[in-house]
Design a protein around this nucleic acid. Sequence first.
DNA 1: AAATTAAGTAAAACATGTTTGACATTACTT
DNA 2: AAGTAATGTCAAACATGTTTTACTTAATTT
Lengths: 67, 67
Amino acid sequence: MQNTIAVRRKQRKLSQADLAALTAVTRQTINAIENDKYDPSLSLAFKLATVLETTVDKLFNQGEDHQ
Amino acid sequence: MQNTIAVRRKQRKLSQADLAALTAVTRQTINAIENDKYDPSLSLAFKLATVLETTVDKLFNQGEDHQ
DNA sequence: AAATTAAGTAAAACATGTTTGACATTACTT
DNA sequence: AAGTAATGTCAAACATGTTTTACTTAATTT
């Protein structure tokens, strides 16, 4: 599964650490997700969409990708 | 996290087993999700939205709920 | 150029999601 | 009323997501 988190995060001039704090996870989690190491949980996906002012459906590209 | 999977599934006259087959998970998984035992993975959430011809954002109610 | 901030990475532990197999209960069908 | 389909549930095993701690490299600032 692909996502546009890094792009949208940079548009808002947030660091991975900032975004991590805003979504209540660790920096490593944000890093792993941005780099397609694994997909976030559904609840984290919603938090990310909220903070990045978009929707889950727009934030993720439903392609089989992963690994 | 709440969802409207059961309602939408019934509208299409599908059993939990049917929906499980269509999304390639077990019947128990669908049952657990419909009854808010746990949230699906993001990828399963997308499969469910696709099969039920809706979006992830419409299918789930971003309330803290869960247990 | 040195200092600081940001990003990448890794292993172990822990938490949550999914399967398997099995059995119980409820709702339909005949 | 008996038979069948659908749903609920449980425990153990397994897979994936997240944290913690720690170290490295890249980028930015002073």
